[in-house]
Design a protein around this nucleic acid. Sequence first.
DNA 1: CCTCAAACTTTACGCGCGTAAAAAATAAAT
DNA 2: ATTTATTTTTTACGCGCGTAAAGTTTGAGG
Lengths: 343, 343
Amino acid sequence: MDDKKIRNMEEFAAVSGISRPTLSKFFNDPSSVRASTRQRIEAALDRYDYRPNLYAINQNRRLTKNIGIIVPYLADPFFAEIARNIEEHILSTGYRPVLLGSHGSPDQEIENLENLRLLKPAGVLLAPLGRASDQARIAAFCEEVPTVLFDANVGSAGLAFVGSNNDQSIDLIVDYLCRTGEPPAFFEMKEPSNPNAYKRRHAYLAAMERLNHTPHLIQAAGEGWEFEEIGFREGTRVVRDRNLPTDTILCSNDRLAIGFLSAAYEAGIRVGLGTDCTMRVAGHDDHPFSRYTCPTLTTVSQDYEAIARKSAETLMNLIEAEKPADSREETLFDGRLVMRGSA
Amino acid sequence: MDDKKIRNMEEFAAVSGISRPTLSKFFNDPSSVRASTRQRIEAALDRYDYRPNLYAINQNRRLTKNIGIIVPYLADPFFAEIARNIEEHILSTGYRPVLLGSHGSPDQEIENLENLRLLKPAGVLLAPLGRASDQARIAAFCEEVPTVLFDANVGSAGLAFVGSNNDQSIDLIVDYLCRTGEPPAFFEMKEPSNPNAYKRRHAYLAAMERLNHTPHLIQAAGEGWEFEEIGFREGTRVVRDRNLPTDTILCSNDRLAIGFLSAAYEAGIRVGLGTDCTMRVAGHDDHPFSRYTCPTLTTVSQDYEAIARKSAETLMNLIEAEKPADSREETLFDGRLVMRGSA
DNA sequence: CCTCAAACTTTACGCGCGTAAAAAATAAAT
DNA sequence: ATTTATTTTTTACGCGCGTAAAGTTTGAGG
C-alpha cells in the first residue's frame, strides 16, 4: 500500500493509468467495464486507498443510492431486529441503508422524513407510528419519494405495504386457546399507538363470535410506547380485582404480556399449564425477550425475516422498474403458533 | 406558501431579494447576519420551502456537521437507549447525528468506521465491541477523526473516554449482598465480548478479598451477544448441578441475569428474599427490562443519561476547541444500587 | 489479416454551494 | 452632516464528480 494520498479521481486516474470517465463508470457499477480494465483498477485500488467523495457523487445524481429506513422505536428489540434484517438486504443490493428511529414521537417521525428528503434517497422503507402519525405529511412524502410501508399502514400512502396477517394470527391463537382451555379475554391498550392493535381487537372479536364465545376486552389506560409498564400496571389491577370471567388472557402484543406476566408473578399468581397454575397468558409477535419470561411466553410469531425481505425486495423492484407502479400491492404474512409455557 | 419550486440558492436569492453569499452565511449560522436581514430571509423561507442541497454544502467543507454514533448492538435496549440520549444532545447543538450499529460484528464495526469516514464527520462517538474489535484500525481511525469512546475502552484510542466506574459499582453490590446474606458467586462469560466484563471480574475478586471471602467464578461458555441465551443455558446447568458454595449469584450484566432468572424459574427454584426462596440473583446495568423479570432484578444502575451527556459534551468541546487536546480525559460515573425483588 | 462493434480516452461542461476580494450600502457614532 | 465600522452585494473561482460527444484503441469473429 503506497501511502501517497490520492485527493480525487483525477489523481487516481493518473496513478492507475485509467481515464477518469472510465473510473467513474467503474465506481458506479464495476461490471460495466471490461474485465481486464476492472482488474487493473482493482489492482491500483489496493495499492492506493482511494474512495470517491460521497458528496460530489451525490450532488449530480437526481437520486442517490441511499435507502431510508424509519422505524417507530429503535429501543424496541422487535423493530431493531427487523431493521437489522432490512439493512442486510439493502446492503446486498449495493445500496446504502440509512436507519432512523422516531422515538415514538410524531414530530420526530416528520423530522426524519424531512432529513431523508435532503439525502435524495432512491427509496424509503417506513414503519410508521400509526395512529399518532401525521397522515397528511406522510402521504405527501410518499408522493415525492418511492416509499414502501411496513408493519403498519397509514391510509393508503406508499407504493406498497408489507405486514402481518393479524386476522389469521389472532384466529390461530384464539383457536388454540379455546381448544385447550377457557376462551381468552383480550388485553390491550384503550387507545393503542399502533394500528395493528385495532386489527387485532377486531380479529379477536370476530374469532370469538365465530366460536360462539362471549368476547371480553380488558383495556388499559396509558399512552406512549412503554408497553411493559402499561402491561404491568394494568396487569396488577386486573389480578387484584379478580373479576375476570376467564382464566385466560390474550395480550395484544408481547410487550404488554411481558409486563402482565411480571405483575402476575409479583401478585403470586402462577401462570401456565401446570396443575398449580390458575391463569394462562398468551402474547403476539414472538418478541426476542418472550422466550425469557417466567413462564416462557406462548405467542404467535411474526415472520420478521419474511417481512424484512419482502419489504426490501418490493422497494428495490419498484426503484429499478422505474415505472409508476400499476397498483398498490399489499402483502400479509401469516403468523405461526409458538407454544411455550404460559398457555 | 407559494408553491413555485426553488431549485437552488440562486433562485431563492432572487425571490427573497437577498444575495447568495449572504444566504450562504445565514444557512451556516443564522446569527451571523444582521437581525433585519435574518427576518427577511426567514419570512421568505416560509413562503417558499427551500433547503440547501446537503451534498453541495458538504462537498466544499473539509468537515461537515455530521456526528457519527456507533454502538456495538442496536437490538440491545441498553445501547438503543444510550444512543437515543446522545442523539438528542447532538441535535440540540445543531449537529446531525448519524447512528450506526455494529450488530456484534468486528467487520461491521470497521465497515461503519469506513462509511463514516466518507461522511467527513466533525466527530465520532464510538462504543466499541471491545475485545473483538480490530484495535489497530480503530486506533488509526481515531487519528484521523476526533473520536470519543464510551462504554468500553480500546487501548487508549480516542481523545477521551466516558464510562462506568466498575470498581465502585461492583464494590457496592458485593457489599450489599454480603451484608444481607451469603457472599455472592460471580456469573459471567468465560470469554466475554465486552471489556467491562473483565473489569467487573477483577472488581469482584478484589471486593471479595477485601471482605475476606472466598471468591467463586462461574464461567459460561459461548460467544457473541446473545447474553440471555447464554445466561439461560448456563443457568440451567448451574441449577441442575447444585454444587454451588453459595446461594447468591452476582451476574456480570443484567442480560445474563435475565437468562439466569428464566432458567431458575423453569427449574422451579424460587429466587428472591422471601422465606420460600432458595437463591438470590443480582445483575449489573439496570437494563430497561430488568424491572420486568420474575422476580424483579436487583442490580446496579449505570447512569445512562450522564454517560450520554458527558460523551456528547466532551466531543463537542473537543471539536469546537479546535486545539489538539492536551491530555486524554477519562470520566467514570458511579453506579447506584437498585434494590428490587431478586436479592 | 481484416472488419466492426465494444470499450476506452480526450475534451469539455455543469451541478449547487463555499468563499475570497473588492465595491457598495447601511447603521452607528461623532 | 460627516466619519467610520459593519454588513451586504457583485463578481468570480473552485470543489470532485457525472456525463455527453467525438475520436481512438481493443479484441472477437470471420
